[in-house]
Design a protein around this nucleic acid. Structure first.
Lengths: 248, 248
DNA sequence: CGCAAGGTTGAATCGAGTCAATACATGTGG
DNA sequence: CCACATGTATTGACTCGATTCAACCTTGCG
């Protein structure tokens, strides 16, 4: 595989791409200076495992670029994704020695890691890190509960539509606002990963994507590139309230 | 209905039954005094709705006694429980004006409510409340993720067995340790509530409970009183790892 | 090229849902 | 006290959506 320039990320918190959203977003200059001292970057290639559930974990981290997943696995191999980690999301739990879930890089990934011991000390002494972490954890809890509704009560078609809507919405928020012609994005997950996320099999995922395509709700270019001509039309397929009240 | 003596709960934090586990558990005497000033108790009868999703919510609260549920509902009536609130659990989100979920009392319920505005101020000024709330929220997030595995990947029988195991484990932790003869407890939920919790229909819940009874995994006395003669036997039915590593 | 990984599609199966009848306990009012 | 309504639970018969198993397609790469 070609040479990866993953380390080409600023080592300076000041111009870090996730500076304003991550666990450090509330920090003052002096707090940032302390964080700089205990941080280091790590890169992973797409497909690599970051940590296995049960492994000792001597750091916590923020995703800087790329996408990672949290998954749980049963003995017989059944897998359920329980978190999708995007840039600025936090990994690890202060006060816990071992990882509770498998963490895997689904794309090339850069993480900003903090040594656990000093990070925990900072949590005690400076309020801004802990405050932000609480806020982020509450957001994650809301997302998890939204996901519980999806897993417990939605049909396969609704699950797929919901996932597409979430990815589309996130992409739309980042991009400068593409043409009205429709929302366009790339799926960051394989069919199997989508299945693990949605509590389905990969065959069902494939079938339902084909069905949405057949019904004109989406268009595909290749396997991963999705065009949503009418976002409201997609939302109708999710089973959610029309106003899509994801954020308060 | 007979007169309820629900207010017969100490108004003094010092001898509150959840003093050592709730959001206030880390507080010093002076902090407790501040909390006392902004707190008030509210009682609800079994079946009553505490708050509707979307309603304005001018307090946060701890469950003192009884059990409440958090549920999400889709327009067409499909319901999914997303949280089960036991004594010491926290309700509400600082920094949010409206409730995100329906909260319902499934048993008679007493809550210790804090006026939201002053509680949020305390979160800023005293670290102990925020620290404990972060810890509790992280625990809830772990529980939610455990539940996502159940909802997404377990069979109906495994779901029922898992729920029974959770209730049994919780009860065993509270009780002085009943006879080795087996664990005994009462189901705090109706069949329908169990179904909403597990992402099933109430008929399937009923059938699977009957099946577990038929197979000798549990014994029923009446509809709600459960006897588990062999806890390991029950655990085998849950699909989880044998060592049942729920707590680190 | 030829293989591997990812993806699609079909046919058969099965687990859980749906609809419906019945049981059982509790409570109410005549 | 009985008749009746109500809420909760059980059970059966049938249906249907998703899984399983399998074949096949597509793409990229050593």
């Amino acid at each position: 595989m070609a040479h990866h320039d993953l380390q080409a990320v600023s080592q300076q918190c000041g111009d870090c791409p996730i500076r304003h959203r991550a666990v450090c977003s509330r920090c003052e200059a002096d707090e940032l200076a302390r964080l700089e001292q205990i941080k280091y970057y790590r890169s992973y290639e797409a497909g690599q495992t970051v940590i296995w559930s049960g492994d000792r974990m001597d750091f916590v981290a923020s995703v800087v670029t790329g996408i990672a997943t949290l998954t749980q696995t049963m003995e017989d191999g059944r897998r359920q994704m329980v978190g999708l980690l995007l840039p600025s999301d936090f990994v690890g739990r202060p006060g816990r020695a071992t990882a509770a879930y498998d963490v895997t890089a689904t794309t090339d990934l850069v993480m900003c890691c903090f040594r656990k011991k000093p990070f925990e000390e900072m949590m005690q002494t400076t309020p801004h890190v802990a405050q932000r972490l609480l806020e982020m954890t509450l957001d994650e809890l809301d997302a998890a509960r939204e996901w519980m509704l999806l897993l417990g009560r939605k049909t396969a078609r609704e699950k797929i539509a919901s996932l597409l809507a979430i990815i589309a919405r996130r992409d739309a928020a980042l991009k400068p606002k593409s043409a009205k012609g429709g929302i366009v994005f790339d799926l960051p997950l394989t069919r199997e990963e989508m299945a693990d996320y949605l509590g389905l099999t990969l065959e069902t995922v494939s079938r339902q994507i084909s069905a949405l395509k057949r019904d004109g709700v989406i268009t595909l270019e290749g396997k991963r590139h999705v065009i949503v001509p009418d976002f409201d039309r997609l939302m109708e397929q999710t089973g959610d309230d029309s106003d899509g009240g994801y954020l308060n």
